[in-house]
Amino acid sequence: MVPKIITRNVDLYYSSFQALKNVSIEIPEKSVTALIGPSGCGKSTFLRLFNRMNDLIDKVKISGEILIDDRSIYKIRSSEIDNLRRKVGMVFQKPNPFPKSIFENVAYGLRVNGINDSQLIANQVERSLKNAALWEEVKDKLKKSAFELSGGQQQRLCIARALAVEPDIILMDEPASALDPISTAKIEELIFDLKKDYTILIVTHNMQQAARVSDYTGFFLNGELIEFNETKMIFTNPKNSKTESYITGRFG
């Protein structure tokens, strides 16, 4: 197991509130890691460490080490943060396509990164839409507005948009919680396909989804990482009684 992401003794405060407490973890590359836990447990905060999205929040204080590919991402120059965010894509709970065409949504990241070669962009858009399992559904209407797509299609478009800039890591914050079961199944299939090329972290409240899609699962509670293990172990024989109470619905 080669760790793609390592955190060591990470604490995070929003002003005086401690949202993460001494979190240490090693996340293997090209695998899916699910982060589970009750609302407010710190899992989304933890997810946002890796593209430094927490930096955008006022009065955030972070300590400890956070490494991607053995390099501390909090010791890089400000000019390198854009590069980090290119390497670490993110998909949110609600699909958030830009008010542009389907094609331009996917091409957007390439254009802002200075790529102007239209053939290269067209190839990359097609490849990304194919990887996001959306190409067959949109190939004849690429110039139509992204808002004409269904919610599930919009979410896959957002995944295609993230894939277009060739990230290594994809962060997903409840990517299927606003979708119907069919769209959810498509997203889950997609996650399963993508893990051969990407390291994926997914925050989910859906325990069955975590069990279905992930290789590893981390359980957070009150800012602490209570247990991290292979998903099979977490859902069949968790070591910590708090994990057991949470996944069996006997929490609190």
């Binding site: 325990m207 069955q208 069990a211 859902f235 069949t236 024989n237 968790p238 057991e244 996944i247 069996t248």
Partner: peptide, 9 residues
């Protein structure tokens, strides 16, 4: 109920 852990066992 889609049981897990002790409930599944």
């Amino acid at each position: 109920y889609q049981p897990v852990a002790t409930d599944l066992r």
